[in-house]
Design a protein around this nucleic acid. Sequence first.
DNA 1: CTCCGTTTGTTGCAGATGCAACAAGCCATG
DNA 2: CATGGCTTGTTGCATCTGCAACAAACGGAG
Lengths: 140, 140
Amino acid sequence: MSDFVLDTFLPYRLNVLAGRLSREFSTRYRERFGITIPEWRVVAHLGQAGAVSVREIHARVDMDKSKVSRAAARLEAAGYVAKRTSPTDRRLVELTLTDNGRAMMAELAGVAQAYQAELLSRLEHTDDFLDGLDALLEAE
Amino acid sequence: MSDFVLDTFLPYRLNVLAGRLSREFSTRYRERFGITIPEWRVVAHLGQAGAVSVREIHARVDMDKSKVSRAAARLEAAGYVAKRTSPTDRRLVELTLTDNGRAMMAELAGVAQAYQAELLSRLEHTDDFLDGLDALLEAE
DNA sequence: CTCCGTTTGTTGCAGATGCAACAAGCCATG
DNA sequence: CATGGCTTGTTGCATCTGCAACAAACGGAG
C-alpha cells in the first residue's frame, strides 16, 4: 500500500486550521452583532475600501458573486450597509457602510486585532511563516 | 475609522488559501475517481489507519459525525469502502477500504505527494512554515 | 436481571452553498 | 440609432452542511 499520512498533507492541515480559526473568531462577534462569516468579510472589506461593487468584493475575496450578493442583502436589512445603484454605470451596485456599520466595524477591528495578536504570539518565526503564506497565496 | 486591513488578517488569509488548495487538488482526483473532498479525507484516513469507526474519523479529522457518515455511505455505494458492525461493540461501525479502495488510494497517494512537492517548492523557509502550522494547530 | 445514563451512527430539517440561467445595462461597430 | 456581444447582480435549484433528535447498544449500580 502507500505510506501516505494525512496529517502531513498541507491542504488538509490548512483546511483544518482555517476552519477552526474562522469558527473560533466568529464566536467573538456572532452573538454581539449577529453577523455570519461571509457578512464579516464584506463588512471588513468595506471598512477599508469605501464604496465598492459586488464584483469588486467577489474578485478580491474569493467569494462567489451570489454569496456576496446575499451577504450584502442581509447586511442591508440589518442596517449595517447601504446599497445604491452607481450613477455612472447602472449595472453596478455601490456598497457602503452606514453609521451603524462603521460603528460595528470599529469594534470589530479591535476584536480582530486582539485575536490576531493571540495567534501571532504562538509563533516563533513569525515572519517566515507569513512569508510562506504570501508565497502560497501568490499563485492565481 | 479603523486602520484594519483584511488582507493582513490571518484567519482570512488561511481560509482563502485553504479553500484554493483544496479545490485545486480536488480537481486532480474528482474526474478520475468521482469522489468529493470529504470522501477523499475519509479514504485517506482509512489508507493509513486500517479499520476505523465513524467516531474515530470524526475525532481525528474535524468533520461532523453526519458528514463522515454520509461520505462513508457514498463510498460504500461506490465500492471503495466496506462497512460492518463491530463484533465487540455493536454500536460501532468498522470502515475498511475494499480492494478497489486500496487501489484508488495507492494512486491518490502519488497524486497527493506530487501536489505537496509542488507546494513545498514554493516555500523558502519550509521548516519554519511547517512549525508555525504545528504551533497554530496545537491548541484544542 | 433490570434500570438508567452514556455513547454511537443515522436521519430530518432548516439554512447555506455553488452553479447556471436570467434580466438589465453597457459599449462598439456599422 | 440599432444591433449584438459583453458585464453585472440577483434568483432558482439541486446539493451540501451543521445541528438536534432519535433508535440501538453498551456498561455500571442496585
